[in-house]
Amino acid sequence: LHIEINVNGLRIELHNVSEELAERIREILEKVDDREEARRLAEELIK
């Protein structure tokens, strides 16, 4: 499954994740104000 999410102008592509996991990642990242911090957090979440 390939999912693309957009959060605060940051486009993140997720591969091989469930829709539920992608939604949780999006919800978490929406709470982060700083774009660079959101990017770093996204990288950690999808490892």
Score class of each variant (00 low, 15 high):
residue 5 I to L: 12
residue 42 A to E: 01
residue 22 A to Y: 12
residue 41 L to W: 06
residue 3 I to F: 12
residue 29 L to K: 00
residue 5 I to V: 08
residue 31 K to R: 14
residue 3 I to L: 12
residue 34 D to K: 02
residue 8 N to S: 07
residue 28 I to Q: 05
residue 30 E to D: 09
residue 4 E to W: 11
residue 30 E to F: 10
residue 31 K to E: 12
residue 7 V to H: 07
residue 9 G to D: 04
residue 23 E to F: 12
residue 18 S to Y: 04
residue 45 L to Q: 03
residue 34 D to Q: 03
residue 36 E to K: 06
residue 17 V to N: 03
residue 31 K to S: 14
residue 11 R to C: 04
residue 24 R to V: 10
residue 10 L to Q: 08
residue 23 E to L: 11
residue 16 N to T: 05
residue 3 I to H: 10
residue 22 A to I: 14
residue 25 I to E: 00
residue 8 N to C: 09
residue 28 I to M: 11
residue 44 E to I: 10
residue 30 E to I: 12
residue 28 I to H: 03
residue 43 E to T: 08
residue 1 L to I: 14
residue 39 R to P: 01
residue 17 V to W: 08
residue 36 E to I: 06
residue 42 A to N: 00
residue 23 E to T: 10
residue 21 L to T: 10
residue 7 V to L: 09
residue 6 N to Q: 10
residue 34 D to N: 11
residue 24 R to P: 00
residue 26 R to H: 05
residue 9 G to T: 03
residue 30 E to Y: 09
residue 35 R to G: 10
residue 1 L to H: 13
residue 45 L to H: 02
residue 18 S to M: 04
residue 36 E to R: 04
residue 25 I to V: 13
residue 4 E to R: 02
residue 13 E to W: 13
residue 26 R to S: 04
residue 35 R to Q: 14
residue 22 A to V: 15
residue 45 L to P: 00
residue 12 I to C: 03
residue 40 R to M: 09
residue 31 K to I: 09
residue 45 L to E: 05
residue 28 I to C: 02
residue 4 E to Q: 12
residue 33 D to H: 15
residue 17 V to G: 11
residue 8 N to D: 09
residue 26 R to F: 07
residue 12 I to E: 01
residue 26 R to N: 04
residue 38 A to F: 08
residue 6 N to F: 07
residue 14 L to F: 10
residue 32 V to K: 02
residue 44 E to W: 11
residue 13 E to M: 09
residue 35 R to M: 15
residue 8 N to E: 05
residue 26 R to P: 00
residue 41 L to F: 05
residue 35 R to V: 15
residue 5 I to A: 02
residue 30 E to C: 07
residue 2 H to C: 14
residue 7 V to T: 06
residue 33 D to K: 15
residue 27 E to S: 07
residue 16 N to P: 03
residue 1 L to G: 12
residue 12 I to Q: 01
residue 14 L to K: 00
residue 5 I to M: 10
residue 33 D to T: 15
residue 3 I to D: 03
residue 11 R to F: 13
residue 2 H to S: 13
residue 21 L to C: 03
residue 34 D to V: 03
residue 23 E to H: 10
residue 47 K to R: 13
residue 7 V to I: 14
residue 41 L to P: 00
residue 12 I to W: 14
residue 39 R to E: 07
residue 26 R to T: 06
residue 12 I to V: 11
residue 20 E to R: 05
residue 24 R to C: 04
residue 30 E to T: 12
residue 45 L to I: 13
residue 6 N to V: 15
residue 8 N to L: 02
residue 17 V to Y: 08
residue 46 I to K: 02
residue 13 E to I: 12
residue 32 V to T: 14
residue 13 E to S: 07
residue 2 H to G: 09
residue 33 D to Y: 15
residue 44 E to K: 05
residue 28 I to K: 03
residue 45 L to N: 01
residue 45 L to Y: 07
residue 29 L to E: 00
residue 25 I to K: 00
residue 37 E to T: 10
residue 9 G to H: 01
residue 21 L to F: 12
residue 47 K to H: 14
residue 23 E to V: 10
residue 17 V to S: 03
residue 11 R to Y: 13
residue 4 E to F: 11
residue 19 E to S: 13
residue 21 L to A: 05
residue 29 L to P: 00
residue 22 A to W: 10
residue 18 S to W: 05
residue 19 E to I: 15
residue 39 R to N: 08
residue 5 I to D: 02
residue 46 I to L: 14
residue 32 V to L: 10
residue 7 V to P: 02
residue 5 I to Y: 04
residue 36 E to G: 06
residue 33 D to N: 14
residue 38 A to V: 09
residue 15 H to K: 08
residue 38 A to R: 04
residue 29 L to Y: 14
residue 6 N to A: 08
residue 3 I to R: 03
residue 23 E to P: 00
residue 38 A to E: 00
residue 12 I to F: 15
residue 9 G to R: 00
residue 14 L to P: 01
residue 38 A to Q: 08
residue 28 I to L: 13
residue 40 R to N: 08
residue 17 V to R: 01
residue 40 R to Q: 10
residue 8 N to K: 04
residue 31 K to M: 12
residue 15 H to A: 07
residue 4 E to M: 12
residue 35 R to N: 10
residue 27 E to R: 08
residue 41 L to G: 01
residue 25 I to L: 09
residue 22 A to L: 11
residue 36 E to W: 05
residue 46 I to Y: 09
residue 6 N to S: 09
residue 5 I to C: 04
residue 8 N to A: 10
residue 27 E to W: 09
residue 13 E to T: 12
residue 38 A to H: 01
residue 17 V to C: 03
residue 38 A to M: 11
residue 4 E to V: 15
residue 45 L to A: 09
residue 27 E to A: 11
residue 20 E to D: 12
residue 42 A to Q: 01
residue 10 L to E: 07
residue 19 E to C: 10
residue 8 N to Q: 06
residue 25 I to G: 00
residue 44 E to N: 06
residue 13 E to A: 04
residue 38 A to W: 06
residue 21 L to I: 13
residue 25 I to Q: 00
residue 24 R to F: 07
residue 47 K to W: 11
residue 29 L to T: 01
residue 20 E to P: 03
residue 43 E to A: 08
residue 1 L to A: 12
residue 9 G to Q: 01
residue 3 I to Y: 10
residue 40 R to G: 03
residue 44 E to L: 09
residue 38 A to C: 03
residue 1 L to P: 12
residue 14 L to W: 07
residue 2 H to P: 09
residue 35 R to E: 13
residue 40 R to I: 09
residue 10 L to C: 08
residue 12 I to A: 02
residue 26 R to W: 09
residue 26 R to K: 14
residue 24 R to T: 10
residue 33 D to I: 15
residue 15 H to N: 11
residue 40 R to A: 09
residue 6 N to Y: 06
residue 26 R to C: 03
residue 9 G to M: 00
residue 37 E to C: 07
residue 2 H to I: 15
residue 37 E to K: 06
residue 39 R to H: 10
residue 44 E to P: 00
residue 37 E to W: 05
residue 42 A to T: 10
residue 45 L to K: 00
residue 37 E to V: 08
residue 29 L to S: 01
residue 25 I to M: 04
residue 16 N to Q: 06
residue 13 E to L: 08
residue 30 E to M: 14
residue 26 R to I: 12
residue 40 R to V: 06
residue 4 E to L: 14
residue 40 R to P: 00
residue 37 E to R: 05
residue 18 S to F: 04
residue 34 D to E: 03
residue 16 N to A: 07
residue 28 I to W: 04
residue 10 L to R: 00
residue 22 A to F: 09
residue 3 I to P: 05
residue 27 E to P: 00
residue 26 R to M: 10
residue 30 E to L: 13
residue 33 D to A: 13
residue 18 S to H: 06
residue 10 L to A: 02
residue 4 E to Y: 07
residue 47 K to A: 15
residue 5 I to K: 00
residue 43 E to S: 06
residue 44 E to G: 04
residue 29 L to Q: 01
residue 21 L to V: 14
residue 5 I to R: 00
residue 27 E to C: 05
residue 41 L to V: 07
residue 15 H to M: 09
residue 4 E to G: 05
residue 40 R to T: 06
residue 36 E to N: 10
residue 22 A to C: 02
residue 39 R to Y: 15
residue 20 E to F: 08
residue 1 L to Y: 10
residue 38 A to N: 03
residue 6 N to P: 01
residue 43 E to V: 11
residue 8 N to G: 12
residue 35 R to L: 15
residue 1 L to C: 06
residue 32 V to A: 09
residue 32 V to H: 10
residue 30 E to P: 00
residue 24 R to M: 12
residue 38 A to G: 05
residue 10 L to P: 01
residue 46 I to F: 06
residue 42 A to I: 15
residue 5 I to Q: 01
